[in-house]
Design a protein around this nucleic acid. Structure first.
Lengths: 219, 219
DNA sequence: ATTAATTTTTAGTCTAGACTAAAAATTAAT
DNA sequence: ATTAATTTTTAGTCTAGACTAAAAATTAAT
């Protein structure tokens, strides 16, 4: 069944909210991310339920069905592959590609995305370290930790980010934090959980808990 | 001013109809190419005139303004550059790319299309031999003739096609007619204006006037 | 120069996907 | 256990862009 642009955006956002929780998703949380009003969301949820892409109980929240999830994953696959293309082939920076990929992810052609995948040499992660689902919608499990969970004096490698916003990515770039960087946690302040880091053997830099939470690392 | 998808498709089609005629364009001819009814076209023409992209006089037809033309040319530029990408980089055949490019041509990003242009090494023509407008909307004048205009016993080179439909392109492929082929007109039948051609030194092939009209050549 | 045929426009309708305001249900607070 | 606060849904509206049927204008035919 064909999916409209609006439907695809809802499914994508519901998927994002479902990740990391077993709870059903609230109307308001969807409204916030789609920048729509709650009433509009209710409307759309009823349509999506009708089409069999979500299970929805009035007042009780929403979940993706198997089919809904596979549609969401195919959009995420397209989004992330296009991001790789934009960075690897066209020379964009990692903070510049999100908005363009938001458009490209809706291009509809099975062959196109598979040819693109092959052209890019079947990448496993996008420029932000996020895993790229394969044709079957399977996501490689990467087992990353949030930098905020790393213990004092431990060393880890920066593998990805949990947030794609341009301002956040530009901050990381300014701090010289890029994929692959070796990080040593040299201080954790109990007061605000802010963190001091050594990158390679440079002098320490200082980041807030908020930033540390959005950095993904491997020990 | 922002352009909707529907508006872009109208402007593109009006541009195509304006080419090759000094006359104003009729509502019906637009309706035919957009696959809409005449009444819907009238509606849209009034909106486009309102925005200053066409000049429109009730019952008297329509023309693009300078601004309308530059919007149309930027869409055509995007369409043709994406076609080059699909064929050169992803390995599509020339008869497979039209529909996908119809989607990609609406992606909105000035930087994207210029980076793509550079990635493709600033191609001058698309896979069908059509010229690619530059950033300023200028189209290189190629001065091609229709094969149907070539005189008996003259030899020419196949430079492009005047029609992108998959069935037409597949026919050419089957006849071994591809860009760059050397063609000699060995017979023109006065009855139906059908043409016999020698490709290189092979034995002659036979094509209808309809086909000859849609093949572009250089003497 | 009328009349007939054709083309184009107007008037009114429909659908997707948004909205606001008010009603209904759920959850939190006493 | 009620009441208050919050969340969600319903009812009704709006806009873009399509449609049909009928009216108006233009063009073609006698």
């Amino acid at each position: 069944m064909a999916t409209s642009l609006a439907e695809e955006n809802y499914l994508k956002i519901i998927y994002r909210l479902c990740e990391g929780t077993k709870e059903d998703i609230s109307t308001n949380s969807i409204a916030e991310l789609t920048n729509n009003k709650a009433a509009s969301v209710t409307d759309m949820l009823q349509k999506l339920a009708e089409k069999g892409w979500v299970t929805y109980q009035k007042y009780q929240g929403v979940r993706l069905t198997k089919i809904g999830e596979s549609i969401a994953l195919s959009i995420i696959r397209k989004h992330r592959l296009w991001e790789v293309f934009l960075v690897e082939k066209l020379g964009y920076n990692w903070d510049e590609v999100h908005e363009i990929a938001e458009q490209l992810e809706h291009i509809e052609s099975e062959t196109l995305i598979n040819k693109l995948d092959s052209f890019l040499d079947f990448p496993k992660i996008d420029p932000h370290g996020d895993p790229i689902p394969n044709k079957e919608g399977e996501i490689p499990e990467l087992g990353y930790l949030h930098l905020s969970e790393v213990k004092l004096n431990e060393t880890c490698t920066l593998m990805g980010v949990a947030k794609d916003s341009a301002v956040f990515l530009q901050l990381l770039t300014k701090l010289n934090l890029s994929l692959g960087a070796r990080l040593e946690v040299v201080e954790i302040n109990t007061f605000d959980r802010s963190v001091s880091l050594k990158i390679a053997e440079e002098k320490p830099i200082f980041i807030s808990h908020e930033v540390a939470k959005n950095i993904l690392v491997k020990i």
